[in-house]
Simulated scan of single mutants.
Amino acid sequence: MNTQKLKVLQVINRSGIAKKTGNAWSIFSAQCVLEQDVDGKPQLLVGTINLPDALKDTEPGDYLANFAFFQSMEGKLEPRITSLQPWGRPAARPKSEAVTA
């Protein structure tokens, strides 16, 4: 699994009916800016990446994105986001157990 800082600009929903099966389909894509270092120099990449259904309601902002590779319908290996953590905000911690006297 790979982790990158990712700025989500907006989430777009594309949907339709499959010609072959007649089944409805829906794909959620995030328009993003990815900043990475290449040979010690910053590089900005702008593009879209598909989101899993669990992340379709993602709000615009900065995230720490976890990626894993999956096989596309065409047989290509493609990265997909597996989780998003808000960037710069502390992760929620469980409350400590109450002490009883």
Score class of each variant (00 low, 15 high):
residue 77 L to T: 08
residue 38 V to P: 02
residue 8 V to C: 12
residue 47 G to R: 05
residue 69 F to A: 11
residue 24 A to Y: 10
residue 85 Q to N: 02
residue 13 N to A: 14
residue 35 E to C: 06
residue 20 K to S: 13
residue 57 D to I: 03
residue 66 N to P: 04
residue 56 K to Q: 14
residue 89 R to S: 06
residue 53 D to P: 12
residue 7 K to Y: 13
residue 6 L to N: 06
residue 36 Q to G: 10
residue 40 G to Q: 09
residue 44 L to F: 09
residue 97 E to L: 03
residue 32 C to P: 09
residue 47 G to A: 06
residue 48 T to C: 14
residue 69 F to S: 14
residue 58 T to F: 07
residue 2 N to H: 10
residue 77 L to G: 02
residue 6 L to Q: 07
residue 48 T to W: 15
residue 69 F to Q: 13
residue 33 V to H: 10
residue 24 A to V: 11
residue 69 F to L: 14
residue 36 Q to K: 11
residue 80 R to Q: 11
residue 15 S to M: 06
residue 2 N to Q: 05
residue 7 K to V: 05
residue 51 L to P: 00
residue 60 P to S: 11
residue 56 K to G: 05
residue 67 F to G: 10
residue 55 L to K: 08
residue 84 L to G: 04
residue 5 K to N: 15
residue 39 D to T: 01
residue 12 I to N: 09
residue 6 L to I: 13
residue 29 S to Q: 15
residue 34 L to Y: 03
residue 27 I to W: 05
residue 100 T to W: 01
residue 1 M to P: 07
residue 101 A to F: 04
residue 40 G to N: 06
residue 24 A to R: 06
residue 6 L to G: 06
residue 79 P to W: 08
residue 53 D to W: 06
residue 80 R to C: 05
residue 63 Y to G: 06
residue 20 K to W: 01
residue 13 N to Q: 14
residue 76 K to F: 14
residue 13 N to L: 15
residue 2 N to P: 00
residue 1 M to H: 05
residue 39 D to S: 03
residue 92 A to N: 04
residue 89 R to D: 02
residue 44 L to T: 12
residue 25 W to N: 02
residue 89 R to G: 00
residue 37 D to G: 03
residue 5 K to Q: 14
residue 17 I to M: 11
residue 77 L to R: 11
residue 19 K to F: 13
residue 80 R to L: 07
residue 63 Y to L: 12
residue 22 G to E: 11
residue 3 T to K: 09
residue 6 L to A: 07
residue 3 T to L: 11
residue 39 D to K: 02
residue 16 G to F: 10
residue 90 P to R: 07
residue 24 A to W: 04
residue 95 K to S: 00
residue 14 R to Y: 14
residue 18 A to M: 13
residue 42 P to M: 01
residue 56 K to C: 05
residue 83 S to M: 08
residue 19 K to P: 15
residue 99 V to Y: 01
residue 44 L to R: 13
residue 95 K to C: 00
residue 57 D to Y: 01
residue 47 G to Y: 10
residue 26 S to T: 12
residue 88 G to F: 06
residue 40 G to T: 04
residue 81 I to W: 00
residue 76 K to W: 13
residue 83 S to P: 07
residue 21 T to N: 08
residue 26 S to L: 01
residue 51 L to K: 00
residue 90 P to V: 04
residue 14 R to K: 04
residue 84 L to P: 06
residue 6 L to H: 09
residue 2 N to A: 09
residue 53 D to R: 13
residue 16 G to Y: 08
residue 83 S to A: 09
residue 71 Q to N: 06
residue 98 A to P: 00
residue 37 D to M: 10
residue 89 R to K: 05
residue 4 Q to L: 08
residue 32 C to E: 01
residue 37 D to F: 03
residue 69 F to V: 13
residue 23 N to V: 02
residue 57 D to E: 14
residue 69 F to C: 10
residue 94 P to I: 00
residue 10 Q to S: 14
residue 95 K to W: 02
residue 44 L to D: 11
residue 40 G to A: 04
residue 97 E to A: 08
residue 62 D to V: 11
residue 30 A to N: 05
residue 72 S to I: 08
residue 43 Q to V: 09
residue 98 A to I: 00
residue 59 E to S: 15
residue 92 A to R: 01
residue 79 P to K: 12
residue 12 I to P: 01
residue 62 D to Y: 13
residue 92 A to E: 07
residue 101 A to C: 01
residue 92 A to Q: 07
residue 56 K to M: 11
residue 29 S to D: 13
